[in-house]
Amino acid sequence: MTEARLIHLVDDDEAIRHSASFMLRHAGFRVKTYPDGVAFLAQVDAAEPGCILLDVQMPGMDGLEVQEELKTRGVAMPVIVLTGHGDVGVAVRAMKAGAVDFVEKPYAKQSLVDALTRAFERLEARRREDVLADEARGLVERLTPREKDVLLGLVDGQTNKAIAEALDISPRTVEIHRANLMEKMEAASLSTVLRIAFAAGIGR
């Protein structure tokens, strides 16, 4: 069984922190609570990755300001904002600033759980992409400088002949480099080579 997903709940209302924590733990999540945005920001740099459930209306530093500070620090955790009934304008501003969803208070349990589930799926997809990118970069790093030159030509859509002319080598030499790079990249086809190159950030 995988470890329960962690929610960082930031809300200045103690009653909401208590009731939401109870409800979310009952739904299978782990919850860490913070009484305001300042307290959360004081700990976020060392915090375990999870999803941030962020109240918009807080004294001192509101949710939008907290969101801006998270962006400045490069904190990539998905944010769901909690808005008061009718705060559509605030919700839109939060979404434009990068929030993945918003939930209106008073919220129904299922709507909140659904929003959190979507946010965690997004977070886990991003982690998978990061792993794939790291693996792709590792495969590309196996190549010699000349093989990388040939790979760049392939990513540009060039033929063996065009690559040969650009690098001032023979088409036969290009074929050899191409066969070697495909072996090193564990690719059985050109399409696989291109997928790995794109995942590694080459040609994008």
Score class of each variant (00 low, 15 high):
V131N: 13
E124H: 08
A97R: 01
D130Y: 10
G89P: 09
S191M: 08
L143N: 05
L123I: 04
R73K: 15
I16A: 07
G86V: 14
A46D: 07
M95D: 00
A97S: 10
D156Q: 15
I80V: 15
P106I: 10
P35E: 09
Q57C: 08
I80P: 00
L167I: 05
R137S: 07
K148E: 00
M1P: 07
R126A: 11
K148Q: 11
V56W: 02
E129Q: 15
D12P: 08
V155C: 14
A46E: 09
P145A: 12
H26Y: 08
V103W: 06
A4R: 02
E165V: 14
P171F: 06
L151A: 07
T2I: 12
I163S: 01
V90P: 04
L9K: 01
A15Y: 11
L6V: 06
A27Q: 04
D134P: 04
E121D: 10
A27M: 05
G98C: 08
I16H: 03
M182A: 14
A133P: 04
R118Y: 11
S170H: 08
A42L: 08
R17N: 15
R25Y: 00
V38L: 12
A119P: 00
L112K: 00
G98Q: 05
K184R: 14
F29L: 01
L190N: 12
D168K: 05
L181C: 03
H8I: 03
T33Y: 01
V113P: 01
E129F: 13
G157C: 15
Q110W: 11
L24N: 01
T159L: 00
R127F: 09
E135W: 14
L53G: 02
P59C: 13
V81H: 03
A115R: 02
R195D: 06
T33G: 07
A133W: 05
L167C: 09
E141C: 11
A108G: 14
C51P: 02
A179K: 15
R146C: 13
L143W: 09
V92T: 08
S19E: 13
T33P: 02
I7S: 02
Q158A: 10
F102N: 03
D45P: 06
P171V: 13
C51T: 00
V38G: 01
V131F: 13
R5P: 04
E3D: 15
I16T: 12
G74I: 10
G89E: 15
R128W: 10
I7R: 02
V75Y: 06
A200W: 03
L41S: 08
D101P: 05
L154C: 11
T72I: 12
L152N: 13
D156K: 15
R137I: 06
V81M: 15
I196H: 04
G74K: 07
D55H: 04
V56S: 03
L181D: 00
G37R: 03
T117M: 06
K105N: 09
S21R: 06
V90C: 13
I16N: 05
E121S: 05
P35M: 12
F40T: 05
L6M: 12
P171T: 06
P49E: 11
